[in-house]
Every structure is written in structure tokens, then in C-alpha cells.
Amino acid sequence: MEVKSSGYESFKQVYKEVFPVIMRVAYHVTYNMDASEDICQEAFIRFFDRGLIFPSIDEAKYWLIRVTKNLSINYVKRKGREKVAVDKIKKQPLPAAKTGEETVIGNETCEMVRQAIQLLPEKLRAVLVLKEYSDLNYKEIANILNITESNVKVRVHRAKLQLEKLLNQEGVHVS
């Protein structure tokens, strides 16, 4: 099905299906909800304004993910230059209200993982985010990042190893 990015109906459908992915990419790269919101809005505005025609909704999704990833990386770099990137993690969304000790522990682990991902180098972070939070396979990630599949495979593994190391340092028991 052909997707016209400036067509109202196509645009609406793409937004409905792709927004969660875009939002997750922006958030897990920046870990800032306000920045993520701005980045997502900007990505969709660019998508609409370009008036592009995609052969499928997946191609439109790859385009949006690529733009969002770049915007997010740029944001992180800018923030890194301002030397406030790591310290400003206070804008994280409040976890959904749940009851029970298990979920509390779960939330703690969640926060640990999120903080650990922020410490990953940009290249590893982008690949890991796309692999774990965008439901994309190696081939799709390779296509979006314009790298080889084996490169994706290696980067994903390296990212996991670094995360494991970081989480063990912070005393989180990964069980």
C-alpha cells in the first residue's frame, strides 16, 4: 500500500501505528520526556512537510525512525556538550501505579537499566534501542543505520555486555 506522507489519511494511519516506536526511540536515546515530545513532533512535521511517497508503511516507519534517531542523538550530543546530560534524568515519567513488592522491585530494575543505557556510547546506544525497543530485526536496523547486518549483531552484543557490566557495578542483581 502506497503511503503519502502529506496525505491526511495516510498521515493519520502512520501516526497511529508508528508513534509508539518513534516515542520509544526518542525517549530511550534522550531519557527526557519533554525532549522526546519535541523530537517526535518535529519528526512528524518533517515527515508531513516533505510530501514523500513510500511503497509501504514499513518504509515510512524506517524513515521516521532514522530522523528521530538522528534528532535524538543530536539532542544528546548537545546536552553532552553542556555537561548536564547524565544529571538531568529527573524528567523521567512517573511509573504507572502498581501494587505489590514485586512490581516495586521491577520498577527499581527498570530505573537501573534506563540509567545504565544512558551511559552507553552513542553508537551502541542507538543500536541497542532500535533492537530492544523498536521491535526491529538486524536487517531492518542495518537498513536504517546504513551499516551491515554483522555490524549490527556485534554492536548489539557489545551493548549488552556493557550494560551487564554497568548493572553489576551498580549492584543490581540481574536474575
Binding site: 515530545e37 504507572a96 525497543y133 548493572l167 540481574v174
Partner: peptide, 19 residues
């Protein structure tokens, strides 16, 4: 480790307002 990473995924209810 993979499960922990996946568990840290931004949930739908966390971005309903932004969406």
C-alpha cells in the same frame, strides 16, 4: 539481561499524554 532490558521499555501508558 535481555528480559531486564526489555522490561525497561517505555510503556504505552507513560506516553499517552504526549501522544
Amino acid at each position: 539481561l535481555g528480559n531486564d532490558i526489555k522490561a525497561a521499555r517505555l510503556r504505552e501508558e507513560e506516553f499517552t499524554v504526549q501522544r
